[in-house]
Design a protein around this nucleic acid. Sequence first.
DNA 1: GCCCAGGTATAAA
DNA 2: TTTATACATGGG
Length: 280
Amino acid sequence: MKQILWSGADFSLSQTLESGQCFRFEKDAGTGAYTAFAGDRAGVFMQEGPDVFLCKGRVEDIPFWRQYFDLERDYGTLKERLAAGDAVMAEAVSFAPGIHLLRQEFFETLISFILSQNNHIPRIRGLAARLCAEYGKEMGGWSAFPTPEELARADEASLRRLGCGFRAVYLVDAVKKVCAGGYAAEELERLGTEELRARFMEIKGVGRKVADCVMLFSLGRYEVFPADVWIRRVMEAAYFGGEPLSLRALQETAAARFGKDAGFAQQYLFHYGRMKKIGK
DNA sequence: GCCCAGGTATAAA
DNA sequence: TTTATACATGGG
């Protein structure tokens, strides 16, 4: 099977899947194909130039995957707007011009990014996989991401046994709050960014970083775009190649960008500075 | 075996 | 308000 999913510029399957937005995908080293999992769906995708193909999966899921990869949005214009008059963003955009913001299911994104704290990507992926295997619906060779109700069967002790560590109590609190209501898609859509962030941060273990990641990688809130994926790309660009950007330059740009929230930006960049050993 | 991670809660300054 | 630590665990 080889169904065309999309054809157009400004989209890179690999850049998008490997930009740290999602934790359930696999790359076939031989063919370069990616298997992506989202909720209880799975698909195998390949990209040849501007053409993206669904190579394995359900044809009726094609509209879902188009939405998931945010393929119908004009990223040319979006990127221009983001990079205008901003050297750091311009650098980020040219470093990874094919990144799209995923529209992942809300609960899966929330749980994944709670798992992400003080953790590295290979281990986050391992944890997510174990969570699916233990509590998600068996799909024949793989497991769906558990629903809030399914994950409500888990208590702190069993989550710790899975290896969640101190994040176990955070997961329990998140599941409890989501099951209690107030997190339906229509309700979240009604809230502005600030209200949404405050709502998420009521959950134990959800700080600004996780809240923003959920808004970015699930809810399409572009206004918080610079706070995560692009900044990370900039840091990688600064660390791995090209003209090195000083931490000071990044901080100044971030302070300008975040305005009143410069403190957060500093803290945020401090972490990345430490992580990537940039600056002093 | 050691190091450390797509942070956050909490204490201390 | 800002800055420093503890945290659980296992992938690399």
